[in-house]
């Protein structure tokens, strides 16, 4: 039996906007992580919270349709990303997890530092988003 849904139009409209902002900020945090505060973990948590806010504002079905990821798979992919970054240095004869960086010129951004820590952080990011949402959804889905 479903209770009468409250009119949460305000919430839904504002959340669409706010989520985008949170997403953008989490992406910034994720990229900033190398030399500034931020990184995969914090970025991932923030992204997870953005998606969670969507789940709060809308219902489960809508969001599951809108974000058709399997979050558990995401954990696996993230772990693989992280570990293969470490292995990549092994292939060139360096110890596991040796990191490299260099500076590159890009047309719009100018000089950018690219590091092998970034794909590693991407792995962490995916794991955190996946794990946080898996756990929260595991409890939420149980309630029906």
């Amino acid at each position: 039996m479903k209770q009468l849904r409250p009119n949460d139009m305000m919430l839904q409209v504002s959340m669409r906007l706010i989520t985008l902002i949170i997403f953008a900020f989490s992406f910034y945090l994720f990229l900033a992580g190398h030399n500034n505060p931020g990184g995969g973990f914090i970025g991932g948590l923030m992204t997870a919270s953005a998606i969670l806010v969507l789940y709060l504002a809308f219902d489960m079905k809508t969001i599951t349709k809108a974000i058709p990821f399997n979050f558990t798979t995401m954990i696996g992919v993230g772990l693989l990303f992280a570990v293969f970054t470490g292995i990549a240095s092994m292939l060139y004869g360096f110890p596991f997890l040796t990191q490299f960086f260099d500076y590159f010129q890009f047309p719009v951004f100018g000089e950018v530092e690219l590091t092998t820590a970034l794909p590693f952080d991407l792995g962490v990011y995916l794991v955190v988003v996946g794990a946080a949402l898996t756990i929260i959804l595991a409890i939420a889905e149980d309630d029906k």
Partner: peptide, 16 residues
């Protein structure tokens, strides 16, 4: 902190 986060979330699911 990351480890504590993992343990706590697992623990919450388990307690639930």
């Amino acid at each position: 902190i990351v480890i504590a986060f993992g343990v706590t979330s697992l623990l919450l699911v388990m307690v639930y």
